[in-house]
Simulated scan of single mutants.
Amino acid sequence: MKFAVIGGTGLIGSRVVKDLNAAGHEAVPHSHSTGVDVVSGQGLDEAVAGADVVVNLTNSPTFDEASPAFFRTSMDNLLAAARKGGVGHFVILSIVGADQVPELDYYRAKVLQEELLAAGPIPYSIVRATQFMEFVDDVMSWTADGDTVRLPATPIQPIAAKDVAAGVAEVAAGAPLNGVRAIGGPEIFTLDELGRITLSHKGDSRTVVTDPTAGMFAVVKGDVLTDKDAHLAATRYADWLP
C-alpha cells in the first residue's frame, strides 16, 4: 500500500515512515521541508495523490488557545485533499484521556481534531497514546527553577516514541477502525516520582518538590490512563533511559 505521512519528518512521523517501508509498503514523508503546508493547503493535493492511506502526524506549534484553530484548519484542508484524492483510510495520533481534561486548551484542540475526522467523509482510525518518554525532560524544564523542579503527583503512563510509531504504523496498515485504539506504556508513575527517577539516573543533583499547582499537568484530575482494552507497549522507562 501507499501511505502519505503528513508530518513525516518529526519524532513520530519519521519512525512511522521507517516502520511502514520496512514492512514492504511505500510510505512517503511530507512536511514543511518538502513543500507541504497544512494551514495554507500548499502541496496537499500533490502529497496525497495516489495514496491509499493518509497518516496525519502534524502538530500545533503552540499548546495554548491558538491550537484549536490550527487543528480545524489543517483537518479541513487535509480531509478535502484526501477526499479529492480518493484516499480510503485516514489516521491521526491523539492523546489518551484528551476528552477528560477540558481545562487544557491543547487537549480540547485534540478532541476537536478527533471530532472533525469522525464526522468527515473518509473511513478513519484514531490512535490515542499516553505521554511520550521523550517529553519528560521538557515537562521538567517548564517548572525548573535553580536547584528545584516542581512537579505535581499526576499519574503518568509513559510510552517510548518508537512504540507509539509502531502502534500508528500497525493501525495504518490495517482496516479502518472507525473508532479509537489506545496505546500506552507498561508502567504507571506519578509525575514527581518520574522526575526523581530521571534526575537520579542522569546524576542531576536538583531536587523534585511535589507541587499540585505546578505546570500543565497540574490541571489533570484523577487518572488519565489507559483502560483494560488498551494495547500496552513493552518498553519500560528504566530500559529506555539513555
Rank of each mutant, 00 (worst) to 15 (best):
V48A: 07
A22V: 07
F63C: 04
G24W: 04
A66I: 00
D64F: 04
E46T: 06
E26V: 09
F71I: 07
K18G: 15
S40G: 15
V38I: 14
F71S: 06
V39T: 15
A47R: 05
D19S: 10
V53C: 14
T62Y: 00
T62D: 03
L44H: 01
S40A: 13
A23M: 04
L57N: 07
D37H: 08
S40R: 06
T73I: 09
V39N: 04
T58S: 05
V28F: 13
V39S: 13
G24S: 09
G41Y: 05
N21R: 14
G43M: 04
F63I: 12
V54K: 00
V38P: 06
T34R: 06
N21K: 11
F63W: 11
K18C: 13
H25P: 10
T62M: 00
T73K: 07
D64Q: 05
D45Q: 09
A51S: 12
V17D: 04
Q42E: 15
H30Q: 13
D37P: 08
L57H: 05
G35M: 11
E65D: 12
H25R: 06
A27K: 10
H25C: 12
S31C: 10
R15E: 14
V54P: 00
S40Y: 02
P29F: 08
S67D: 08
T73V: 11
H32L: 15
D19F: 05
S60E: 02
E26G: 05
A23W: 02
F70V: 03
V17N: 03
V53N: 06
P61K: 05
G24H: 07
G43A: 07
F63T: 14
E65N: 03
R15K: 15
E46D: 12
V16D: 01
D37K: 05
G41K: 08
A51I: 11
E65R: 04
D37F: 07
E26R: 02
V55Y: 01
D52T: 14
G24A: 10
A69L: 08
V28Y: 09
G43H: 08
V55F: 00
D19N: 13
V53H: 04
H25T: 12
A47W: 05
H32P: 02
A47Q: 07
S14A: 14
E65M: 01
D45V: 08
A23F: 03
T34V: 09
V38K: 08
F63V: 13
N56D: 15
D19E: 13
H32T: 15
V39L: 13
V48N: 03
A66V: 00
A22S: 14
P61I: 10
G13N: 02
A27I: 14
V48D: 04
H30R: 11
G43W: 04
F71V: 07
T58Y: 01
